[in-house]
Design a binder for these strands. Structure first.
Length: 258
DNA sequence: TGGCATGTTGGCGA
DNA sequence: CTCGCCAACATGCC
C-alpha cells in the first residue's frame, strides 16, 4: 500500500531512530521471504551497526557497518512497527533488536514482503532521480502502451504506484488512457515536471501530518485518487474506471491522445 | 456485513 | 515481440 512518498518518510524516520545503533538480535519467521537462508542473513547482520537507511524505488535499504545492504520491499501489506522489549506485533516476519532496547519489526499478514541481502544493481532510475527529466521521458514514451501502465512499470522508472500515477497524470492534464507515443512534446514536459512536484509535495504533506510515521499511509491530501472526493479542485467531476484490476481516477479535462 | 484495496510475477491470448 | 488482462497472495477496514 505505501508508495514512494510514504516510503521516503519511513526511511528518514527509521534512519533517525536507528542509525548508529548496533543490531544485537534478529528473529526471523519461517514465513519470511528471503533471498538467502535465515542463518546467512543473521550471520551477516547481527552485531553490525546500522549506518544508514534510505529509499530506492519502492524498497527501503539498510546499510550495515560491514557494508551489507538489506533491502526490504513491503509489497501490498508490509508494515514497520517500532516496539520495545518483547512486545512483538502481530504477523511479524522479522524483528530487529537494537542496543538500547528500541526495536522494529517487519509485519505482513499476507506474507509477501521481501527481504533481500545485497540487492542487485539496476540501471532503472528512481522517479526522483535527476536523470528522470524531460529528455528521459521523451526517450521512454515511444511505445504504444497506455501512459498509466508505463508510469507503473518498474522496469522504466522505479517508485510510482497506482495512486500517484493518477495524481501525476491529473496534474499534467493527460488522460491515463493516452497512448504513450501520441503524447505531444509540450505535454511530456508537463508530465516530467508533474512527477517531481506531485511526489515531493506528497513527501511534505505526509511529514506534516505525521512527522514520525514509519507505517501505514496518508492519502487524505490526494486530489484525484481519493474515493471521498467527487470533484477535482477546479470543480470537474472525478471519474473512476477499473484498469487491470486496479482503480483509475481521472477527469474529462485530462486530454486523451490516441 | 462483505467488497475493496494495494504490488509483483507469470501465464495466456489478441 | 508487444501489450492488456487475470489470478494469486490473505486480511483489515469502512
Amino acid at each position: 500500500m505505501p508508495e514512494l512518498p510514504d516510503l521516503e518518510n519511513f526511511s528518514r524516520n527509521l534512519h533517525k531512530n536507528f542509525a548508529g545503533k548496533k543490531l544485537v538480535k534478529l528473529k526471523l519467521s519461517k514465513a519470511a521471504r528471503l533471498n538467502v537462508s535465515a542463518v546467512v542473513l543473521k550471520k551477516k547482520l547481527v552485531s553490525q551497526k546500522l549506518i544508514k537507511v534510505y529509499r530506492e524505488g519502492k524498497e527501503l535499504r539498510f546499510v550495515f557497518s560491514n557494508k551489507t545492504i538489506m533491502g526490504i520491499h513491503l509489497m501490498l501489506r508490509g508494515r514497520f512497527y517500532q516496539f520495545s522489549g518483547e512486545n512483538i506485533p502481530k504477523h511479524s516476519l522479522a524483528e530487529f533488536f537494537f542496543q538500547g532496547g528500541q526495536n522494529f519489526a517487519l509485519t505482513d499478514f499476507q506474507r509477501n514482503a521481501r527481504i533481500t541481502i545485497d540487492p542487485p544493481e539496476t540501471s532503472v532510475p528512481d522517479a526522483l532521480s535527476k536523470v528522470v527529466n524531460e529528455r528521459f521521458w521523451k526517450e521512454q514514451l515511444l511505445s504504444k502502451a497506455a501512459i498509466k501502465n508505463l508510469l507503473l512499470d518498474q522496469h522504466i522508472v522505479r517508485g510510482i504506484g497506482n495512486a500517484y500515477a493518477d495524481e501525476i497524470l491529473w496534474k499534467a492534464g493527460i488522460s491515463p488512457f493516452s497512448i504513450a507515443n501520441k503524447i505531444p512534446s509540450a505535454k511530456i514536459k508537463k508530465l516530467s515536471a508533474a512527477v517531481k512536484t506531485v511526489l515531493n509535495r506528497a513527501i511534505k504533506e505526509i511529514k506534516k501530518t505525521d512527522p514520525d510515521i514509519i507505517g501505514g499511509e496518508i492519502r487524505s491530501f490526494l486530489q484525484i485518487h481519493n474515493s471521498s472526493k467527487k470533484k477535482d479542485p477546479s470543480g470537474n467531476t472525478i471519474l473512476q474506471k477499473s484498469v487491470g484490476g486496479r482503480k483509475t481516477y481521472y477527469t474529462d479535462e485530462q486530454q486523451l491522445f490516441r
